[in-house]
Amino acid sequence: MSVAAVTVSHLSKSFGGREVLRDVTTEVHPGDVVGVIGKNGAGKTTLLETLLGFSPPSSGSARIFGEDCMQMSTAAKARIGFVPQQDELLPTLTGYKQLALNGCFYENWDHALLERLAREWEVPLDRRSSTLSGGERQKLSTLIALGNQPDLLVLDEPVASLDPLARRRFLQQLLEIAGDASRSVIFSSHIVSDLERVANRIWIMRDGNLLWDGETDALKQSVKRLHIRARRPLPAQLDVAGVLTYRREAGDTIATATVRDAPESLPQQLAERLDAQVECEGLGLEDIFLEIHA
């Protein structure tokens, strides 16, 4: 087992008595591309910024490359690339100057890679960042985060301002560069289809809890939608472990249930117990996300 890039243990975070992260425990290993999803205010940004040391944990710990996030050494920080939700570009400087200034902080800054990427991503480096569009600013922020060839790349909503075409190309290239087996990527996004396409692990956040932490495929395998059609009215509640949602329709003889971690025999069991016809359907990530938040 490789050394974890990120180790989070019972991490909680409160702001003025309001708990925004609750007992989060997880790990990120080299080769992981973790997609973080959750509604607004679910705690995604707080989680990312807490584990990078911007915000001290209220309890628990977060370690990056084995070092406490609040006491990281210069060497550990030099292995991190971060794209914050609100960019940190200096508005009066051109892209070239921004890259050069950021490069001063790192010994392994790769100017050639950044200039190549800037051309491919169509980032006008000769313009002041205050004159760039939202998408161009996001791309420039990502370029800066890639400059030090980070072993851990953390991106908070990196594609929110990009059009679908640019988004797809951008993410693909990003993962080609940063997503090799020796590196880890964590990125949050509201665009679930992007996560589904590129992430091999998913964190689903709800109300500060890490509701799901696992392989994307395992998540899809574990959540199923059951279509139940019975001859007589179905019960008001479905007495089955792991029910996420349960809705009755049409005279209470038709119902849809979403269940998690259900045994393969569940449709058969339900069919016998409810004297109904039960069909099982696999869900995409977006549907799973919606069902979890229903």
């Binding site: 609040m70 210069t74 920080k77 030099a78 940190e88």
Partner: peptide, 11 residues
Amino acid sequence: RMLWLRGGRDR
């Protein structure tokens, strides 16, 4: 905060 990761300094 802009120098937290870049500068490598502690608080």
